[in-house]
Write a protein that binds this DNA or RNA. Structure first.
Lengths: 107, 107
DNA sequence: TTTTAATATTGCAATATTACGATAAACAAA
DNA sequence: TTTGTTTATCGTAATATTGCAATATTAAAA
């Protein structure tokens, strides 16, 4: 095996898991943090900041983009990336609502 | 390759990524949701609810426990699991603070 | 003690992820 | 058109994850 049984779970569960999974790597957390700090920046700037080769960074950017966490705008031969707040808001609200519904613990 | 370069990132980045990663699977999201709904319950109840075999569920529970998202208390020969709010609060607050710091988008 | 019940662990196959060199693609500049 | 710059894609090796059958472990019950 090795393939997740996504069809056995609800759309919402799969959606939240996909967003969380995209953020489940320190390089992608670092990218998000850098985009927050600089507000927006070129792909090349991110490559300079991270301890990873350019193709690896490009791959991480693609995953964040697929998950709807960032978006990129082509400017000439460069690409300007920035945060797409929508899905970050979704997962933030999701966790907040889970915590609100969680009262006492048995253990 | 295939191994994440954790030593090149900050402790905070690695920590947030680890929590997000643990939540990056629909089965683990479903487990968390079920624990919220029932407040606390036995491992066996979770196995009944999920479309996965007992060893697979046990493995997912272990990952959630390692990430500090749930905790389990042994009661006789059964184990009662419940949410450990601490790390869920951490990631919830983390995303909230990221969103607060994120103003306008370039693209 | 033997049996039963509830979880955890082991071992393994299938698949996914991570990382990067090489290369391609797209565009600007000369 | 040629060259340089920027980013994406391809191919591939190393490693991690997912899932489950078989089995071990632990403790209650008979």
């Amino acid at each position: 095996m090795g393939a997740t049984k996504t069809d056995h779970f609800t759309d919402k569960q799969n959606e939240m898991a996909a967003i969380a999974k995209a953020l489940g790597h320190p390089a992608r957390i670092a990218i998000v943090e850098h985009l927050i700090k600089t507000n927006a920046c070129y792909c090349g700037d991110i490559v300079e900041v991270l301890p990873l080769a350019q193709p690896t960074v490009s791959q991480h950017l693609k995953e964040l983009k697929n998950a709807g966490i960032i978006k990129g705008e082509i400017e000439g031969n460069a690409v300007c990336y920035c945060i797409d707040k929508k899905n970050l808001s979704k997962i933030s609200n999701y966790f907040a609502s889970i915590l609100n519904r969680s009262f006492k613990s048995c253990c």
